[in-house]
Design a binder for these strands. Structure first.
Length: 566
RNA sequence: UGGGGCGUAGUUCAACGGCAGAACGCCGGCCUUUGGAGCCGGAUGCUGGAGGUUCGAAUCCUCCCGCCCCAGCCA
């Protein structure tokens, strides 16, 4: 497999440069990366960036990438999350092959290595409470001081550590600490905790253990066990790298992995923090982890974002070490690119208003041929029934149109896509003055949508035959937060939630070819946007989620009009 | 006030001592049986600042400024 001529491998960044140099100079024989999620929540778009990076590098350089669950804290972790994470990584398009691993697989080895450190006088059991440890640690500007237990003899430490494992002590009563440097400017070196007592059932090891290793003591050693060559993580772990290296140097590990850090992803109008996402779910601001408004992979999948768009986006934004916030428009662009190419076109009317074509024979039905995707001739054509009474979009008519409104208006001829030219002659209103029906005539010579005399119309409208229409619920989605940088104004994050992030339209009409469309499929409703069939959908009651709108020049004209008149 | 990082168009990134570029966004035009898509064109930078080295600095050096991360028995 030669990826090196493909466009994706032309992309470069400082990490790929390092990998290429390590391979070239023989520091590694082949590259091994890993994606190491903690199963304490669902994966989000920020994780997708890391997944694309790790799996992408492995595939571009002919190496491999492991999926490793960093499951060292049973009080926060659940099997549900493990299952969801595996599903999401696969959905994104990546395969870890044989290399599904769990840090918990290494608990016995990690324990032995802890014993090794104790024997060398490089670790000790501390009886201080959590609060005392914090006090002894010092502050950012003042050095810490030694715990009274710091010089405990190795034999006593060994004995105590064994008894910690045996379950003789309650939670929080003792910890195992590395013995490094209480005065270090790097706080991670001030005798970091290696093991804590947690009498809690673990999703995988059950009650086999009541002491669990900390992240610092587990991560690098797990990398070493798996032969990871490049351990890639986010910037907040930079300060941990010297400690990561310290364990690799002071333990008889089978390989010497190295850690590299990159800037985590931030996106406007949303938030990528597991803590906040968990709150959104638990407090009911959204309906679940897979709510279409959530930036989780399960959320965007339900919204209708294709995995390919997500991967393209990851390639677009690149990898760097500076903090940044990507405009969500860039993600949306990547998604539209894919959907424009792949989504079949259909007719759907969201806010229906009735059209009656007075000179069209009552009871007549014509099957109008129309293309499934102008971007892809191989998608073919389909037949859409046309009849005397139709639904069109309420927004496509104005009784008193402003200058730049091209759509239907009294006396104006427009095209019904793939059907006929029609002209509105009369507007029927109800008692409240609401337009309820548009009486039109059609020109039989314009069948298919073009006129033999060559006359033009400015607008083309989508439509659905009333007699053949399939009712559907359509859920309109918008950004979760109104503010591009949620919480930046210092107010509570949740006050900035967009109240209009979801709008449910219960009475929409779609063309009959959509009657049996399966959940998960995405189509373009012409002129409106992309719509994905929600899992709530049944053949009796269709439900579509609006993935994204199409770019709409008219909304810009409207906005400018408002500005001018203001 | 200790330690570790980061500053290049509005945004995300390139440029690795040799004319500061791309993508997204924005503006204008063309085209159009989607006001979509596509095509063409345009604007936008004191490369955070000040010194220095050099024929030549975004790039190397010094100082300054700003922003981010670290004081969990979370990861």
């Amino acid at each position: 497999m030669d990826n090196h001529t493909s466009s994706s491998s032309e992309r470069s960044d400082f990490i790929r440069d390092i990998v290429a140099a390590d391979l070239r100079d023989g520091r590694v024989d082949s590259v091994v990366t890993r994606f190491p999620p903690e199963p304490n929540g669902y994966l989000h778009i920020g994780h997708a960036k890391a997944i694309c990076l790790n799996f992408g590098i492995a595939s571009e350089f002919g190496g491999r990438c492991h999926l490793r669950f960093d499951d060292t804290n049973p009080v926060k972790e659940e099997q549900e999350y493990i299952d969801a994470i595996e599903k999401d990584v696969r959905w994104l398009g990546f395969d870890w092959g044989e290399h599904l691993h769990f840090t918990s697989d290494y608990f016995e080895q990690l324990y032995e290595w802890a014993v090794h450190l104790i024997s060398e006088g490089k670790a000790y059991v501390d009886d201080l409470s959590a609060e005392e440890i914090r006090e002894y640690r010092g502050t950012l500007t003042e050095p810490g001081k030694a715990s009274p237990w710091r010089d405990r003899p190795a034999q006593e430490n060994l004995d105590l550590f064994k008894r910690m494992r045996a379950g003789e002590f309650p939670n929080g009563s003792r910890v195992l600490r590395a013995r490094i440097d209480m005065a270090s400017g790097n706080i991670n070196f001030r005798d970091p905790v290696l093991y804590r007592i947690l009498h809690a059932a673990h999703p995988r090891t059950g009650d086999a253990w009541c002491i669990y290793p900390s992240y610092d003591f587990a991560h690098g050693q797990s990398d070493a066990i798996e032969g990871i060559t490049h351990s890639i993580c986010t910037l907040e772990f930079q300060d941990h790298r010297p400690l990561y290296d310290w364990f690799i140097e002071n333990l008889p590990v089978p390989s010497t992995p190295h850690q590299y850090e990159f800037a985590r992803l931030n996106i406007t109008h949303t938030v990528l923090s597991k803590r906040v996402l968990l709150r959104l779910v638990k407090e009911g601001h959204v309906r679940g982890w897979d709510d279409p408004r959530m930036p989780t992979l399960s959320g965007i999948r339900r919204l209708g974002f294709p995995a390919e768009g997500m991967r393209d986006f990851a390639a677009m934004i690149g990898i760097a070490r500076s903090d940044s916030v990507v405009e969500i428009q860039m993600l949306e662009y990547a998604v539209r690119q894919v959907l424009n190419r792949t989504a079949q076109r259909r007719f759907g009317v969201l806010n229906p208003v009735k059209v009656v074509i007075e000179n069209y024979p009552e009871g007549q039905v014509e099957e109008m041929e129309t293309v499934n995707n102008p971007e892809d001739p191989s998608a073919g054509t389909r037949l859409v029934p046309f009849s005397r009474e139709l639904w069109i979009e309420r927004d496509d008519f104005m009784e008193d149109p402003p200058k730049k409104f091209f759509r239907m208006a009294p006396g104006r001829e427009v095209r019904l896509r793939s059907a006929y030219f029609v002209t509105c002659n009369e507007v029927v209103k109800d008692a409240d003055g609401e337009v309820i029906e548009l009486r039109c005539t059609y020109d039989p010579e314009t069948r298919g949508g073009s006129s033999p005399d060559g006359r033009k119309v400015k607008a083309t409208l989508h439509w659905v035959s009333a007699a053949h229409a399939v009712p559907a619920e359509v859920r309109l989605y918008d950004h979760l937060f109104t503010d591009p940088n949620p919480g930046s104004d210092g107010r509570d994050l949740f006050e900035g939630l967009n109240p209009d992030s979801e709008t449910v339209l219960p009475t929409c009409y779609v063309e009959p070819s959509l009657a049996d469309i399966p959940a998960g499929e995405t189509v373009q409703f012409e002129r409106l946007g992309y719509f994905c069939v929600d899992p709530d959908s049944t053949s009796d009651s269709l439900v579509f989620n609006r993935t994204l709108t199409l770019k709409d020049a008219w909304v810009k004209v409207q906005a400018q009009g408002k500005q001018n008149s203001a």
